[in-house]
Design a binder for these strands. Structure first.
Length: 429
RNA sequence: GUGGACGUAGCUCAGCUGGUAGAGUCCCGGGUUGUGAUCCCGGUUGUCGUGGGUUCGAGUCCCAUCGUCCACCCCA
C-alpha cells in the first residue's frame, strides 16, 4: 500500500454524521437573518496581508503569530483570512457601497489561524458573521444582541449567558490605557510574567488574567467603565436599558476587552460553561473607526461572529439534532431483468412522486443483503422488483417499520400504492 | 509557542514484571435456492503512529519525530 496522506493539522472534515447540526445552525441563522433584513455577501477567503495588519492591529496575537501568510506567484503577500469583518469592510469600500449608505450584511465560511488545536479551537474554523454599517447605535447594538438571543432560543441552546461592556471612544480608551499602565507600572513587582509581557503589548488584557494571585491587584485597578467619555457612557446606558426592556439578561463585565484593535464602545460576548476552555460562542462589538482606517469614508459599524464548530458542539449536547431524513422507499431488485429495469422504474417513480425519497439498491447483492441495506437505510417501506414480479407486471411493497403484510400492486398504479402504503392503514405515517 | 496524557483491526478497546497479537462491533457468506432488524454458524481485516536504540528477543523499556486530546497563551 502507498503511504497515506495525512490531513492538515487542525483542519477537520465534517462528516455526514455531523452535517445535520451544521445544516440546522446554518438554516436557522439564514432564516432569522433574512427576517431581520440582513443580506448575504460572499467575499474571498484570501486578502492582501496588509488589510489584516491594518484592520486587526499590527501588535495583536492574530497578526503577530497566527496568520497563514504566503507570497503568491506575482510576488504579493497574501493571507488566508483570520476573521471576516476586515474583508467585508474592504468589499464595501472596493465596490463603492458607502457614501452615507447603510448596509445590513452577513456572511459565513472558513477562517484560518495557526494556533495549537484544542477542543473548540481549530486552524480552519467556521464563522457566521453579521455586520451592520452606517448606523451609530445604540438601537442597532440592541437589535443585534436580540437577534442572537433569538437564535439561541430557536436552536434550543440554553447554556449561554451574555456579557457586555463599553470600551468608549478610541481617545477615551487610550487615556484609560495610560492610567492602567501607570497603575501596574507602580506595582510592577507584583505582576506575574504573563502580565509583565502584556503591560508592553496589551495592558487591558492584564485585567483578564486567570492567575488567582493577581486578583487583588486587578480588583484595585482603575475600571474602564468609570473612565468613559460622556457620549459613550450615555450610549452604554441606553444599551443596558434596552436589554432590560427586552428581558435579555446580561452581566456587565468591565474586563471584557476584545482581542482585536478595531473595537470601540459596545462590545459583547456570549459565553458558555459547556465547552471547556473555549467559552466564547459569539462575540462582537462596535468598530466605528475601522472603515476610515481602511481608507473608506468614515462610517460607524457594529458586528459579531459566531463560531460554528462551537455552536455545533453546544447543539449536539442538547441532543435535539435531527438525523438526516431516511428514504421513504428502498427498491430491492432481484434477477438480471429486474436489476436492468430497476433504474428505469426508480426514475419513473421519482417523476411521479417528486417529494418522496427513493433509494435504489445499487451494486448488486443477494436478496438478504439488499433487505439488510433496506432496513439499515431507515426506509419506511421496501419495494421489491424481481423477475417474477416483472413477468406479472407488478411490484411488491413491504412495510419495514410496522407490522403489516406485504402487498402487490400493478406497475401502472404503483405511485398511488406507494402513497397509500406510506400513509399507513389508518392514515398514520 | 509552553506543559501534561495518550497513539494496538474500519470503529470501541484488552494485551500482567519484555517471549513475534486478541475481544466486541462493522462488513461479507451461510442457516431461510426471494424477505430486514433478533438468533445461530463461519470468514476477511493489523507496517502494534513513524524512525532509531537497548536486548538472544520489543506492542511492552529508552530516545526522537508525527498525530490526537486536555490545559496555558490567545480566541469564534
Amino acid at each position: 500500500m502507498t503511504q497515506e496522506i495525512q490531513p492538515v493539522r487542525g483542519m477537520n472534515d465534517v462528516l455526514p454524521a455531523e452535517i445535520g447540526a451544521w445544516q440546522t445552525i446554518e438554516g436557522v441563522a439564514r432564516e432569522l437573518l433574512a427576517a431581520y433584513g440582513y443580506q448575504e455577501i460572499r467575499i474571498p477567503v484570501v486578502e492582501r496581508t496588509e488589510l489584516f495588519k491594518r484592520a486587526i492591529g499590527e501588535y495583536t496575537d492574530v497578526v503577530e503569530k497566527e496568520m497563514y501568510t504566503f507570497v503568491d506567484l506575482g510576488g504579493d503577500s497574501l493571507t488566508l483570512r483570520p476573521e471576516a469583518t476586515a474583508g467585508v469592510m474592504r468589499a464595501l469600500i472596493s465596490n463603492g457601497m458607502l457614501r452615507g449608505q447603510r448596509h445590513k450584511l452577513w456572511c459565513t465560511g472558513p477562517m484560518f489561524r495557526h494556533e495549537k488545536p484544542q477542543k473548540g479551537r481549530y486552524r480552519q474554523f467556521h464563522q457566521i458573521n453579521v455586520e451592520a454599517v452606517g448606523m451609530p447605535g445604540p438601537d442597532v447594538d440592541v437589535e443585534l444582541i436580540a437577534l442572537t438571543a433569538r437564535l439561541w432560543r430557536r436552536l434550543g441552546i440554553e447554556r449561554v449567558r451574555l456579557e457586555v461592556n463599553s470600551l468608549g471612544t478610541p481617545e477615551a480608551r487610550r487615556a484609560y490605557r495610560e492610567r492602567l499602565v501607570e497603575y501596574f507600572q507602580a506595582r510592577h513587582e507584583r505582576l506575574d510574567d504573563d502580565s509583565r509581557r502584556r503591560l508592553e503589548g496589551n495592558p487591558l488584557r492584564i485585567l483578564d488574567s486567570k492567575n488567582p494571585d493577581m486578583r487583588e491587584l486587578i480588583d484595585g485597578a482603575p475600571v474602564l467603565t468609570e473612565h468613559l467619555d460622556p457620549e459613550s457612557r450615555d450610549h452604554f446606558q441606553a444599551l443596558r436599558c434596552a436589554l432590560d426592556e427586552l428581558d435579555i439578561p446580561f452581566r456587565v463585565n468591565p474586563r471584557l476587552v476584545r482581542g482585536l484593535d478595531y473595537y470601540s464602545r459596545t462590545v459583547f460576548e456570549w459565553i458558555t460553561d459547556a465547552l471547556g476552555a473555549q467559552d466564547a460562542v459569539c462575540s462582537g462589538g462596535r468598530y466605528d473607526g475601522l472603515i476610515a482606517q481602511l481608507g473608506g469614508e468614515a462610517t460607524p459599524g457594529i458586528g459579531f461572529a459566531m463560531g460554528v464548530e462551537r455552536l455545533v458542539a453546544l447543539l449536539t449536547q442538547t441532543g435535539r439534532v435531527q438525523p438526516s431524513p431516511a428514504a421513504d422507499v428502498y427498491i430491492v431488485v432481484s434477477g438480471s431483468r429486474a436489476m436492468a429495469s430497476g433504474v428505469t422504474l426508480a426514475e419513473r417513480l421519482r417523476n411521479e412522486l417528486p417529494n418522496r425519497r427513493f433509494e435504489l439498491n445499487l451494486g448488486g447483492g443477494n436478496f438478504k443483503a439488499q433487505f439488510r441495506r433496506a432496513d439499515r437505510s431507515g426506509a419506511a417501506i421496501a419495494l421489491i422488483l424481481g423477475d417474477d414480479e416483472l413477468e406479472r407486471g407488478v411490484a411488491s411493497l413491504k412495510p419495514l417499520r410496522r407490522e403489516a403484510g406485504q402487498s402487490e400492486s400493478p406497475l401502472p398504479t404503483l405511485a398511488a400504492a406507494i402513497e397509500a402504503a406510506l400513509a399507513g392503514p389508518a392514515g398514520q405515517p
